[in-house]
Structures are given as structure tokens and as C-alpha cells.
């Protein structure tokens, strides 16, 4: 049983005109097996929250804390956070020229497992993970995310989620850009990871359609750098019907 605890998190970014505060005190607790959906308008800071937890160098933490099972996440390097059990499926997965998917996955698995996976079982493992997400085996020899379509990049993220078996996953708009079939395939991948690893999930999305597949236990409304309302799954339907006007008007 793991707990990711975010307390009063304040984050700013450096711009040409000085530092701008984006997150203005975020409180959120996610436990193993729970799924929390975050919905909120463009630019409200959802990706900033995701990146800050993962340790992206662009963001400066100006206040608050993030702990995983009591350990100070903000004090860890990016790779240490992954080793502690955090995973971020990115809104815009990055292309890494010249690095093959298979080399990348093996390097990551070696780092996270503390030893290189046995070659024979590993090949089968990767093949299985790719098949599960309907990815052609030829992706293994392609360069990481290079030339992948938007949907292929997202599948590749969830394939890594299944392969690397984190404790807590943040999915930043994994559903954006997916066709109806891919949405189902990707959702099933997330649900398998939940079932197999008792994964805790923070799911950032704009649409309720993914919530039909991945059932949230909690829905949080994010606006202007913080959580402004919390509720159960029906809150998502209310948002879809009414938009965010109630939360951003002030």
C-alpha cells in the first residue's frame, strides 16, 4: 500500500518577465488502487502539476511538499523518483533521435529493476507488452517516439507503464488524440496495470469518454493553479454539461 501525498504545492516558472506562479497550493492524496481524475480548463496548470511531481527542471517549487510513502519526492532527482515508483505518461512524449525503443526500454528496465533483465524472457516480455497495446513489433527497432503518430506515442507511454510497473502513475491527457479503438486499448492497458500492480492513478483529462473505461474514484476540478472542487464520478458529467464557467468566473 503506497500513498502519494501532495501538500500546499506551489510552483512557478521562469519567464522573460520574471518568475510566474502557476500552482497556487495544491493538496491531493492518492493511495494504491485509487483513480483520481483531474479536469480543468486549458492553462490551469494540470501539466505543471504532473511535471513538477516528476521533477522537470523547468519548474521551480516555491512551497509545499510531495511525499511518496513518507519519502520526500521533491528532494529526489528525476530518475530517483522513477525508482521510487512514480511514472508520468506525458501529454507530449519526447522524440529521442538515434535511440531505439528496444534499447531505451531495456536501459529503463535495467535501471528500475537494479539488474539487466534476462535476455530470453525480456524479448518475450516486450513482445507481449507491445501486442497488448496493438503495437506493431517493428516499433522496437524505431527511434523513441520519432515519427510516431500522436496516438502511437500515447500507446508507447502506456506500454511503458505496463512494462515498468510503477506504484503511482500520472497520465497527462493520455486520451487526447486517440481514436475510439485506441482509447479502449489504452484504457485496458491502464486497467491491467491497476489490477496487476495495485497502481494508483492520477488521470488528467478533458473528456469524460475515457472515464467510461477507467472508472475514477474521485474527480477534482482544477482551475487557476489549484483544486477548486472535489467529488465522485458524477462530477465529471456535470462538468461536461456545464463547462468550467462556475469555477473560472471569479
Amino acid at each position: 500500500m503506497s500513498v502519494l501525498e501532495i501538500r500546499g504545492l506551489q510552483v512557478s516558472v521562469d519567464t522573460e518577465n520574471g518568475s510566474v506562479e502557476i500552482l497556487k497550493g495544491v493538496d491531493l492524496t492518492i493511495k494504491s488502487g485509487e483513480t483520481h481524475a483531474i479536469m480543468g480548463p486549458n492553462g490551469s496548470g494540470k501539466s505543471t502539476l504532473a511535471y513538477s511531481i516528476a521533477g522537470h527542471p523547468k519548474y521551480t517549487i516555491t512551497g509545499g511538499s510531495v511525499t511518496l510513502d513518507g519519502a520526500d519526492v521533491l528532494d529526489m532527482t528525476v530518475d530517483e523518483r522513477a525508482k521510487a515508483g512514480l511514472f508520468l505518461a506525458m501529454q507530449y512524449p519526447v522524440e529521442v533521435p538515434g535511440v531505439s525503443v528496444s534499447n531505451f526500454l531495456r536501459t529503463a528496465a535495467t535501471a528500475l529493476r537494479g539488474e539487466a533483465p534476462k535476455l530470453r524472457t525480456w524479448v518475450a516480455e516486450v513482445k507481449g507488452a507491445m501486442e497488448a497495446l496493438n503495437m506493431d513489433p517493428s516499433f522496437a527497432t524505431r527511434n523513441v517516439n520519432e515519427g510516431f503518430s500522436g496516438g502511437e506515442k500515447k500507446r508507447h507511454e502506456i506500454m511503458q507503464l505496463e512494462l515498468l510497473k510503477p506504484k503511482m502513475a500520472i497520465l497527462d491527457e493520455t486520451d487526447s488524440g486517440l481514436d475510439v479503438d485506441a482509447l479502449r486499448i489504452v484504457s485496458e492497458g491502464v486497467n491491467r496495470a491497476k489490477a496487476n500492480n495495485d497502481l494508483g492513478v492520477l488521470l488528467i483529462t478533458h473528456y469524460t469518454r475515457i472515464l467510461k473505461y477507467i472508472k475514477p474514484d474521485f474527480v477534482h476540478v482544477f482551475a487557476n493553479g489549484k483544486i477548486v472542487e472535489e467529488g465522485g464520478p458524477d462530477l465529471a458529467d456535470k462538468l461536461e454539461a456545464n463547462g468550467y464557467a462556475d469555477y473560472v468566473s471569479k
Binding site: D79, A82, M90, P93, F104, T107, A108, A111, L164
Partner: peptide, 23 residues
């Protein structure tokens, strides 16, 4: 960042990127 977010150390991430550049 992308490589490190998968547990790869900074040193190994740099090595991968440089190898990738020359590959």
C-alpha cells in the same frame, strides 16, 4: 528528462543521447 523519468540516470541518459546523435 524523458529518459530520466523512466529511471535512467543522468549519466546514462547523456550517453544514450550522444550515442543516438552519432548513430
Amino acid at each position: 528528462f524523458y529518459l530520466m523519468s523512466r529511471g535512467i540516470t543522468l549519466e546514462n541518459a547523456r550517453r544514450l543521447v550522444v550515442r543516438g546523435f552519432f548513430n
